[in-house]
Structures are given as structure tokens and as C-alpha cells.
Amino acid sequence: MIQRVARDSDVLAGGVLAALGVYILVQATRWEYMGFDGPGPGFFPFWYGLAIVILSLWLVVGRLFRLRRESPGAVDWPGVRRALGTWALFALSVAVMPWLGFVLSFALLTFVLVRWQFGQGLKTAAFTAVGLAVGFYVLFPLALDVPLPAGRLGF
């Protein structure tokens, strides 16, 4: 039972949100609530922080009551792993952008995604990566004058 409660997504989400709500409340009480010229910076966060705490606890408690009746649906773990892997690659490509620049890191991201996440051939992956990166470079900075993050190489 306890394991099932701890693994339940609503309980988990409610717990995280309640913690966030408490953090907001703690911060808000450090700032002025009502000052010389009217409500201070702590005024509004106090109220929505309180609302987050109350609603997230409500979510958790409501879920606990229903938990006996409903069993949680199965989670598509391979799918979730795929999605999180894609996200990690995307985040990594953003992280290296200050050094490699948009064009290079985007080409690398595309290559890896097409080759391994989508299981396409090496040639297709390379072609897509180069094609998209060049396309972005021609369209945005060259034709439309929209800047892209530049790396140490100057583009």
C-alpha cells in the first residue's frame, strides 16, 4: 500500500507542488506585505503560495481516498525513457551552444536524433542534419536578419 501511494503520480505531483508552495510562502513572508505606499512585494506571492499549498494537499488527500478504488494505469516506461533521452540531448545541445554556436550544435543534435531516436540510416541522418542546419543559417541570419546564438567560431 505504502509503495503504491509513494509511486502514485498525483501524490508525487501534489507533494512537489506543496513543497514549492511552502518555498513561495517562506520567500513571500521575507518581503514586505503592506508598506508605506500600499501592498508590498510579498503581498501577492503570499496568497498564491498559500493557494498552491492548500490545493496540492487537497489533490494528495483526494487521491488517497480514491486510491483504494482505482488502480493506477500502467506507465509506458520505454516511451518515457525515449522522451527523456530526447530532452537530455536537446538540453545538451543548448548547453554547448555558447561554444559551438547554433548551427553546429543543432546539426549534431539533428544527426543524433535522426540516427538513433528515429532509427534512420547514417546517410539520411547526415543529410538531414546538414540540410536543416544550412537551411536555418540561410533563412534566419542571412535572409531575414534574425540573429542565431553564435559560438566561439563566430557563427
Binding site: 547554433f102 543543432f106 536524433l113 528515429f118 539520411t124 536543416l132 536555418f136 534566419f140 542565431l148 546564438p149
Partner: peptide, 13 residues
């Protein structure tokens, strides 16, 4: 496989 990287790229731009 082209569209998804493209969406990510456009989002960054």
C-alpha cells in the same frame, strides 16, 4: 524525423 528537429530548431530561434 525531419519535422521534430526542425520544431526544436525553430523554437530555439
Amino acid at each position: 524525423y525531419v519535422l521534430f528537429p526542425m520544431i526544436l530548431g525553430i523554437s530555439v530561434v
